[in-house]
Design a protein around this nucleic acid. Structure first.
Lengths: 168, 168
DNA sequence: GTCTATGCGATACGTTCGTATCGGAATCGG
DNA sequence: CCGATTCCGATACGAACGTATCGCATAGAC
């Protein structure tokens, strides 16, 4: 049967649940229910929960990188704006990766890819790092409700107007 | 007995554990053991686990704000550098607050205080927001090992040399 | 002194987790 | 058409969680 397609479906369910309740609200049973498969099916796709989370993180990384690559001009917006569901999921994985040796390398790889792409885009690694960090911080602060998306956009435009190049 | 002092000790234990294993690795039993009190004592101090986490978050917020207030000139460093144990704990709470209605207001309040202080310091709310977001993003990226502390400092200096005022 | 009330640490309870195991349908070679 | 094998969903299991309960010390009133 389509084993790999099912892994994708399950990863989607992981993201949905992580978006709603955070990563610690993601249980094997709930993932199975959300993906409309049995608990046994989830277990057959992934030997352990860690493996499942790792795959889901890789999938999210690919998805984000893909969106940035699809429209480089919109890269800033694609990364920075928390309207995308991935923002919450991403933050959940980041927090987990900080204390999980299994997840950390996967996340580092995604960040490396992202920064490489931004460096190519802006022609300056330092600007890329600045933009990436600013986007991360702004996304976080919008997610917790400290900034509105409009305020975040304002910061992004203002902060990049100076030494970090055009804001797009 | 000194009920309030014990709450402080327990909050410390919460932070220690959150720093090591993340917030989902914080259990009532482990907190009690780390704080050298009985499980019953923890329960008497805080009616529920959520209440305990909420208090711990408030405590961390006060501590960070206090350090910034103590040395405004060092504010950037105090916030941005992830060498302080609070960085990891803070990130853990941020991730949790995004999906927890109980924690979110507490975190928002801390961010509001922080931004007010930075606005006063820099004389420009936009600069304050930029600095705060940049510091948040850099701290996160250092924590996951994508940037070294030195690289983060470099970004911070470069990013602030332009429109955001002196980097200190 | 005794009695009472208060605060303590230990233990018990019900739930939920990740994982392991198991009986039955479906598939394929003969 | 039949036996073996593989795959599937359901169920079982041990551990660990948050929370509730319970004896037992201890301090103050009389």
């Amino acid at each position: 049967m389509d084993q790999d397609g099912r892994r994708r479906v399950i990863a989607d369910a992981v993201c949905l649940l992580a978006d709603e309740r955070g990563l610690e609200g993601v249980t094997m049973r709930d993932v199975a229910a959300r993906a409309d498969v049995s608990l046994g099916a989830v277990q057959r796709c992934f030997r352990t929960k860690d493996e499942m989370l790792k795959f889901a993180l890789e999938e999210v990384g690919r998805r984000i990188l893909g969106r940035v690559g699809d429209s480089p001009a919109e890269a800033v917006r694609a990364i920075a704006l928390p309207e995308r569901a991935e923002a919450k999921v991403w933050l959940a994985f980041v927090a987990q990766a900080v204390v999980s040796p299994h997840l950390a390398p996967v996340l580092r790889a995604s960040y490396a890819d992202l920064q490489a792409m931004f460096s190519r885009l802006l022609g300056d690694p330092l600007k890329a790092r600045t933009l990436l960090a600013l986007a991360d911080g702004l996304t976080t602060q919008v997610l917790i409700g400290h900034l509105t998306p409009d305020q975040a956009r304002e910061v992004l435009s203002g902060g990049l107007a100076g030494p970090a190049g055009p804001a797009g």
